[in-house]
Structures are given as C-alpha cells and as structure tokens.
Amino acid sequence: MTDFLPITKIPRTGLPAHALVVGDPDRASAVAELLDGAALIGQNREYRTFAGTWRGVPVVVSSHGVGGAGAVCQFAELAEAGVHTFVRFGTAGALRADIADGDLVVAEAAVRDDGVTQQLIHPEFPAYATPEAVLALAGAAAAHGLRAHRGVVWTRAAFSPMVLRLPVADYVAARVIAIEMELSTLLVFAALRGLRAGGVLVIDGNAAVDNDNPTGYNPHRQVVTDAVAAGSRAALDALVELT
C-alpha cells in the first residue's frame, strides 16, 4: 500500500469534504489560484488536484478530463479520501436559442447518455442533483450578477456524430437545455454513494444542431473566458454553502 491513491495520486485520507471538479487541468490550476493557501496534492494523467480554502472553508479543486469513464475514477478516489460534496464546474453547448454564450446553466438533473453509468445501475435510475446544490448554485449566480438558467442537461459520451446520427432534435423537443459530457456520471455516482452533488456549466456555443465538423468548435473566446472566471467564484461560493 502506498500513501496515495492509484489513479489520481491524491492522498488516501484527510481531504476536505468539499470538492469543485472540472474537466481541464489548466482550469483546475486557474481556480486554485483563487484559493487561500492552495497546494498541489496530486497529479497523474488528466487528474490535477489542489487543496486550499475558500472563505475560510477547506476545499479541493480537481480535474477529471473528458468523458464519464475517466471522471468516475476521480470521483471514487476523492470520495475515498474524504470528499462528500461535489460541484462540477464545466462548459456546455446550449440547446435553446435564448441561452447565450457566457450564460450559466444550473443542472437540476441529467440525461444518462454518458456511456458508463449504464454499467453501474439500471438505466431507469435517475441522475438528479442534490436540491440544496441547485438552490445554492442558482443563488450564487444571482449574487454575482450572472445570467443563469435551470433545467435538465444531456450528458453524452460521443462528442459528434459519425455513421449514427445522435438524437439532438428529440432532446431539444423534450426541453433539455444544454449538452455536456460528465455530469450525469457524477450525479449517479453521488446518489449511489449517499453523497451530495450538483453542477453549473458555462455555455460556450449552441449545439442544437449536431456538428459534423467538431474542429470548427471554438470555446476559446473572450465571452467564454470571462464567464468561466466569474463562474468559478460563484461555483466556489455555492460549494462552501453546502456545509
């Protein structure tokens, strides 16, 4: 036995109870710069993990990469090391015309098209956010003056279509408001473990029509960068309210 966990290389015990999880390791580093006393406590593959404090509350910030299969490995190791409250802070494509680039989406639940939770629990089991997390995230967005929308998001394993077409039109018709790649995995994992979880996402484009050329996708625009910076603080505020 080593004193760190095998996939994320974080300490086996003693982590703060609250974690902000993000996809991009560089985003984890940027959020960590906002914390007091931030220190790198684990790094391996796509997983980069920091501990520090926000408004006096100890927190973890950790990256999980792209997709649910890798992300659930991070969630499991964070939980083993002491985390019981998770907020995912990421980006998403809007599925409604009135949701603009730079807006926030607070997830109330997620469509389980993630490619991994179907191997953890029957498909009828819902992916739902902890109600207190939804309220805290919506309240924090409002307090920061950020435009936010609440609703169901679609977590999809495939980034773009190939031979098979993906049911975008069906979920648009069902009033699903955004699409991303990891949140339903977190919500199901947390529910099965008796943990708390929620998610807030920055909109970086409109995905109401599936894009056959994903190389044309451009999230690296100032409106998205500014919203990520502001949303980071709102997400941290909401996280530490969930005591």
Rank of each mutant, 00 (worst) to 15 (best):
R96F: 00
D210A: 14
T185C: 09
V106D: 02
V163M: 06
V163H: 12
F189T: 15
V61L: 00
L137F: 00
P161W: 06
A197T: 12
G151A: 08
R48W: 06
T85E: 01
A207E: 02
V152M: 04
L120I: 15
T215K: 14
S232H: 04
A107D: 07
P58L: 05
A207S: 08
V83L: 04
I99Y: 05
V176M: 04
D113C: 09
A227G: 14
A32F: 03
I121W: 03
L242K: 05
T155K: 07
A30C: 05
D101I: 12
V200P: 01
P167C: 08
H149A: 09
S29D: 10
P6D: 03
H18K: 13
V188K: 09
N206D: 02
D36R: 09
V111K: 07
H18C: 03
G139N: 08
R165D: 12
G82F: 08
T49R: 04
V111F: 00
A191H: 12
D98S: 04
A230Q: 05
V72S: 07
A30P: 04
L146M: 14
A143G: 14
L192H: 10
G231F: 05
L239Y: 03
S29I: 14
F50Y: 09
H144A: 14
F89A: 15
L236R: 11
P167N: 12
G68M: 08
A173Y: 02
V163Y: 11
L195K: 14
W154D: 02
W154P: 13
T8N: 08
A235R: 14
V31L: 06
T2Q: 10
D3N: 13
T117L: 01
S232M: 05
A30T: 09
N218Q: 10
E33H: 15
T8Q: 02
P167I: 13
G37P: 05
A136S: 11
D26W: 03
L236G: 04
D204G: 11
T243R: 09
T8D: 00
H18D: 04
T53H: 05
L192I: 14
Y128L: 13
V105S: 07
N213D: 11
S160F: 00
F189I: 15
A208C: 10
R88I: 05
N44I: 01
I99G: 04
D36H: 13
V59K: 09
G115S: 06
A136N: 11
V163I: 13
V87R: 06
V61D: 02
R45A: 03
L195V: 08
V22D: 01
A136T: 10
T225N: 07
D26K: 15
S63W: 04
D98M: 00
A142L: 08
I121Y: 10
W54Y: 15
P214V: 08
V21H: 00
A227H: 05
P214W: 02
S29A: 15
R112C: 00
V209N: 07
D103W: 11
R233V: 01
R45C: 02
G68R: 15
G93W: 00
S29Y: 07
A133Y: 03
F86L: 02
A19G: 09
R88H: 01
V200D: 02
F125P: 10
A197R: 11
